[in-house]
Design a protein around this nucleic acid. Structure first.
Length: 331
DNA sequence: CATCGATGTTGAG
DNA sequence: TCAACCTCGATGG
């Protein structure tokens, strides 16, 4: 479920609260027990995200590779500073807070404790939310926890990942080499050039290319639909038929949306709106996108009903009126 | 309470 | 092309 922005935020959580600490690694559920012993008790030395994958390095040179897939999630607890969560305060998390069950570890309502250093329990997947607290540290694992990473004052539980394995540096490099550029990882110029070159050589429709992690990293079904609408681009156009300028603009827009996503923890794709509409988008998840999940609803620009069609097993949403072939003669 | 579907990927056929 | 993976919120009875 998480697209690239979530994974970067999760990596940041590890960088802030685990890197530099000795980590006890276990597998309460059991399925990771063999690999857990390879890194159990080591110091975590680095945390980084590339696209939808995260890599955690330990001081014996081994890495933990995690891909959350469609249901994976991390639960953090302990000395997790409010830092990583404040940016979401206006959105989804605000709603959670308003249910009234959220207390930080000092027993104060999180909404009214700006600057408070701790929250009780933070779940990070495609959404982020604060969950009810616990009595003793570390808290008991909730559900089937594949991996538990426990430092002296923080804990992270992983459940439902598509991929979770301990690998060597060479294998990390191989995994990254299979991925297309990530705007937050690749050097700016080089990332754009890689993307443009890859797209312009493919006869595959751009709607599929944007979802191909070997072409560009981190885009999922929401960002795909929204990027194409923002570009007013027909998803069916083959990559090689697009003007180069259009492809460059797509890359720049992805970099922009990803940056916003990492900053806010939300997929804000209607950033050009006025203040009033923008706040409505923040408040209502159903009112947040141009075309995603809006089958049959009127296009926000022209009123034409939004179309949904299946493409490679995923739902593709677009406006059949506004999203057209780009003008080949444009500069 | 049962069922469905999801912001993903892999591998079998 | 499609099922499997494995979890959980949304939906309907």
């Amino acid at each position: 479920m998480p697209e690239g922005h979530s994974v970067h935020r999760i990596a940041r959580q590890f960088a802030l609260h685990f890197v530099g600490k000795k980590v006890a690694v276990s597998s309460p559920q059991g399925r990771f027990a063999g690999d857990a012993s390879k890194i159990d008790g080591r110091l975590m030395t680095e945390a980084k995200a590339v696209g939808k994958q995260m890599f955690l390095e330990f001081d014996n040179g081994l890495w933990l590779r995690v891909h959350l897939g469609i249901y994976g999630a991390w639960d953090f607890a302990g000395d997790i500073t409010a830092d990583a969560t404040t940016a979401s305060a206006g959105g989804r998390m605000g709603q959670t807070n308003m249910k009234g069950t959220i207390l930080d570890s000092r027993g104060e309502d999180s909404l009214h404790s700006i600057g408070a250093p701790r929250v009780t329990r933070l779940r990070m997947s495609e959404q982020e939310k604060i969950e009810p607290g616990y009595d003793t540290f570390p808290p008991d694992p909730i559900g089937a926890v594949r991996v538990r990473l426990l430092s002296e004052d923080t804990v992270a539980d992983l459940r439902g990942p598509t991929a979770c394995e301990v690998i060597t540096p060479a294998e990390v490099q191989a995994a990254i080499d299979k991925l297309g550029p990530d705007p937050l990882i690749d050097p700016p110029k080089r990332g754009e050039e890689r993307f443009v070159a890859a797209v312009l050589k493919k006869s595959t429709p751009i709607g599929l290319l944007l979802m191909d992690q070997s072409i560009v990293s981190g885009i999922g079904n929401v960002y795909r639909a929204e990027l194409l609408f923002r570009a007013r681009l027909d998803p069916h156009i083959p990559g090689k038929r697009l003007p180069e300028a259009t492809v460059r603009a797509l890359w720049k827009d992805w970099k922009k949306l990803l940056t916003i996503g990492v900053q806010t923890g939300q997929m804000l794709t209607m950033d050009g709106l006025g203040k009033k509409q923008y706040e409505a988008a923040l408040a209502n998840r159903d009112d947040r996108h141009w075309v995603y999940h809006r089958t049959g609803l009127p296009c926000r620009v022209c009123g034409t009903p939004i179309v949904m069609e299946m493409a490679a097993g995923r739902k593709l949403y677009y406006c059949p009126f506004d999203q057209t072939a780009p003008d080949q003669t444009a500069p």
